[in-house]
Design a protein around this nucleic acid. Structure first.
Lengths: 129, 129
DNA sequence: CAAATTTTGTAATGTTATAACATCACTGGC
DNA sequence: GCCAGTGATGTTATAACATTACAAAATTTG
């Protein structure tokens, strides 16, 4: 893997929360002060194509893929309280969504499935506080 | 409904394609040259809360709700060729997704389900051209 | 009416993403 | 070895999307 791509992936892997491209940029600048947005975006694009990174469309943010099922679309659960993101791969669900959209002749190519809510920790924390 | 909100909704209703906030702004400026981004965004936020407008997260764009089921999350099919968006309300699908994400204790609150692909017209057009 | 509250307008700014073009690094023919 | 051709990277600038902050106007309420 190319050095820039590796650096970007490492930054994402350090975090369980989604980071924006500019969060990644700020982190990288500690070591490489001259790095530019373009560099980060190019790395993110490549990593996404490889399935190593997911973009959270509803947050304009990115996480490292943790599911080791690179290539399959995931259902992404985003905690609105702590920002943590869980991945869940469920081919049957994808098929069900494809079937639903296909009824009108639509041909599905890419799925974006994001669920906002509260993770187990924050839900309990909020309830007992 | 407030005049600004109505104007914004009307612009969106004229189009079957998703429009960005600045597309809406440009359209409104034909008649109201002094209107500002803030005004459009405030209207879009209010209309979204009422379920009259959906935001396509993966395009940073907006469409008028056509399903007359304001309030229920929709599956949005976005044609990557012509930009048209179809809505499809399927409570069972939402429940299935909620169930999948709930396995880890996650509490789902808002669903973002967007499918990119080709609509029937573009799929056929592309095939026969 | 006048004070309090909410809505709207206006300007500036912040955030996210890409375009355009220069430069560098590698490859393969000569 | 040299030097075109190709693709990756760097650099600068700017485009596109969104919010903040505060002032002015409208609306509500005592």
């Amino acid at each position: 893997m190319k050095p820039n791509h590796l650096m970007v992936l490492d930054v994402l892997k350090k975090n369980s929360k989604a980071l924006t491209a500019y969060d990644v940029l700020a982190d990288l600048r500690h070591l490489h002060p001259k790095i530019a947005p373009t560099t980060v975006y190019r790395a993110l694009t490549a990593l996404e194509e490889q399935g190593r990174v997911h973009r959270i469309e509803s947050k304009s943010a990115y996480i490292a893929c943790r599911c080791d099922q690179h290539g399959r679309a995931s259902v992404l659960s985003v905690c609105e309280d702590c920002g943590r993101v869980e991945e869940c791969v469920d081919p049957e669900l994808l098929d069900a969504i494809s079937t639903a959209t296909s009824k009108t002749g639509f041909k599905p190519l890419r799925h974006v499935i994001e669920v906002h809510g509260l993770c187990a920790i924050c839900e309990n924390g909020a309830a007992t506080s």
